[in-house]
Design a protein around this nucleic acid. Structure first.
Lengths: 193, 193
DNA sequence: TCCACTAGATAGAACGTTCATTCTAGTGCA
DNA sequence: TGCACTAGAATGAACGTTCTATCTAGTGGA
């Protein structure tokens, strides 16, 4: 997930992610990051200009990683239905493989602590735009109901997020069949009646 | 929303909600709450034992208020479809009327800062249990697909949450027709094919 | 091969600020 | 007078950040 960084940066980012999920931003002190990552505060400030920068870098890296992974599924050759399924499968797959990353993005995508500019860049490099395009195509072909494609994508993403949240809280499991069914539910709701 | 509290408590809770949405928990200092609510720190500590208690009280009050409002729609006499529509309409209505409350609950329902006990009590007094019951009934009657009703409720709630988030971020509007359509999409995805 | 020098990396103490909370003094109603 | 309440200064801990000293690896002249 943090392959583009050096050893120290990687250790700091990984540690920060673990702590922030476990304890929140306000309890994630530089002293604690230093202690748990086994990097002194001096070194941390050698590689990062501030705590804010660490958090924003974390956000950027995770979104970039997930964005690429989902797009690989979404942009394969296939019917709209196939690409719909591949795309959402990958959205869920990232959250299953890196639950901390998923939780972090979920919590901080609406936080003033993440710079607007970072959010904007993340959105543009992410999977939202191609997914919106897929939905717009489906509507143009008369396959999906007529509505704002961006809004329907958001609604479906919300369904996925809450399914994963249920799973992460231990209130449900997340089997292949369950994922397929959830995607099917979204599909069935979206198509023209 | 805070009718059960006295004037000072009400001012503190309302102010805290405004600040925490605008600036995050870590930037919501007691000094700032005191200044903006025009209540001295001494008085605040006369009515609340700590900052944590203020935040947890805020959480409790909002969930209780919303829970009651939604249940009023959900528990009216009517068909499953009607009650489904009334229930979700009210979920969206609370978030439209008190967007700060909605955002706060959204952000903090997964936060370690809110006591487990408070979350538990909130869940029990909220609208989730009756909504789960409605879905279970719908499945028993063969109206909805067979699946874990709690999970489907969560998925639908996720759709609503993300629709409202889109609206609050200015990326879409939230008209009566749009709300009806969103609820219809959920319904169509849920029923037996 | 050796040594002097340099640049970057690292550690952790020190700094100044801000924070949640407590304390003290005061107010006004019963 | 007694008591609930209020104001705001005081307190001490914790924080993000900076500073200073030390370490490490690499370079190049002799």
């Amino acid at each position: 997930m943090f392959e583009q960084y050096n050893k120290v940066q990687k250790a700091v980012l990984e540690t920060t992610l673990q702590i922030i999920i476990r304890k929140e931003l306000q309890a994630t002190s530089m002293a604690l990051i230093a202690k748990e990552s086994k990097v002194s505060t001096g070194s941390i400030y050698h590689y990062f200009s501030s705590k804010e920068e660490i958090i924003n870098e974390l956000y950027t890296a995770i979104v970039a990683y997930n964005g690429q992974f989902v797009q690989e599924g979404l942009n394969r050759e296939g019917t709209i239905r196939e690409r719909f399924i591949w795309g959402w499968e990958r959205v869920i797959e990232t959250s299953r493989q890196y639950p901390e990353g998923f939780q972090f993005i979920e919590q901080y995508s609406f936080s003033p602590y993440i710079y607007e500019e970072v959010k904007q860049k993340a959105y543009n490099g992410g999977w939202c735009a191609p997914m919106n395009k897929l939905y717009a195509d489906a509507m143009e072909q008369g396959l999906f109901r007529e509505m704002d494609p961006k809004l329907l994508v958001q609604m479906h993403y919300g369904s996925m997020v809450y399914m994963v949240k249920s799973y992460l809280q231990g209130n449900s499991d997340l089997t292949e069949a369950g994922i397929r069914q959830a995607i099917e539910i979204c599909w069935q709701g979206a198509i023209r009646g």
